[in-house]
């Protein structure tokens, strides 16, 4: 049995009547960058929250490096670092203090804080209170704090949402270099096809809580005879949405 970083088996999550995740299965290899794509409400955030131990599955099983996210919550939390779709930082901490706080929480050295400073690209602004940051600056701080602790698994829910193109490209490159260097496994969700194509080793297209298509970007493009992932997305999901 190969060593998977994440194993999701027949995962279901119901919120009353709503079936947010409905029979999802996939696995992510160690060191891989894995992308979740899908329309709004497809269940990406719900799936990522379950992997991050924040929600409990209604049915099915999720393992992170072999540990069950329900039974071994505490151990899983030590292995992961989770960036929510909407994440704030403490208003009256400076960016630098926030990074130091996170380093202490994960018990990593000051070296990690220096990496965080570099990843964020925020420079002198790190000395200011977070309350003075723009939306994009806050996002960069969040991505930096999620990655700098060198988790075994980074769970990033729309990491570059709210960033302008230049910063998104910068951050994407930073993520890729950093992750390769420290052998961090990444699972991320995104609405940006270019980003996914650029960054991800493998991709799963999710619709209505289940996998609609899965593979490397190249595999998906040739399977659906598409020029790019956007076309794949529209073919797979557009059908389901009844747009064609």
């Amino acid at each position: 049995m190969p060593n998977y970083a994440v194993e999701v088996k027949d995962l279901r999550k119901f919120f009353g009547e709503v079936r947010a995740v409905d029979g999802l299965s996939f696995s992510v290899g160690e060191g891989e960058i894995f992308g979740l794509l899908g329309p709004n409400g497809a269940g990406k955030t719900t799936a990522l929250r379950i992997i991050a131990t924040l929600l409990t599955p209604s049915e099915g099983e999720v393992r992170v490096f072999g540990r069950d996210v329900v039974r071994d919550k505490d151990e899983v939390r030590k292995l992961i670092s989770y960036l929510p779709e909407e994440a704030g930082a403490y208003k009256y901490l400076t960016g630098y203090e926030y990074l130091s706080f996170m380093a202490k929480v994960y018990g990593v050295s000051d070296e990690a804080v220096r990496d965080g400073v570099r990843l964020s690209g925020l420079g002198n602004a790190l000395g200011r209170y977070v309350s003075t940051y723009s939306k994009g600056m806050k996002r960069r701080l969040q991505v930096a704090r999620a990655l700098m602790v060198k988790p075994k698994l980074a769970i990033l829910d729309e990491p570059t949402s709210g960033l302008d193109v230049a910063h998104a490209v910068y951050l994407r490159k930073a993520i890729r270099d950093y992750v390769r260097k420290y052998e961090v496994t990444v699972i991320l969700s995104s609405h940006n096809m270019l980003e996914v194509e650029d960054l991800c080793d493998r991709v799963a297209l999710i619709n209505r809580g289940r996998i609609a298509a899965q593979g490397t970007p190249e595999e998906l493009m040739s399977e659906y005879r598409a020029k790019n992932l956007e076309e794949v997305f529209v073919r797979v999901v557009g059908d389901a949405l009844g747009l064609d």
């Binding site: 924040l54 909407e86 403490y90 994960y106």
Partner: peptide
Amino acid sequence: EKTLEVLLSLPI
């Protein structure tokens, strides 16, 4: 301030 979700995912 939407800091709770991160806080609860931390190993504390």
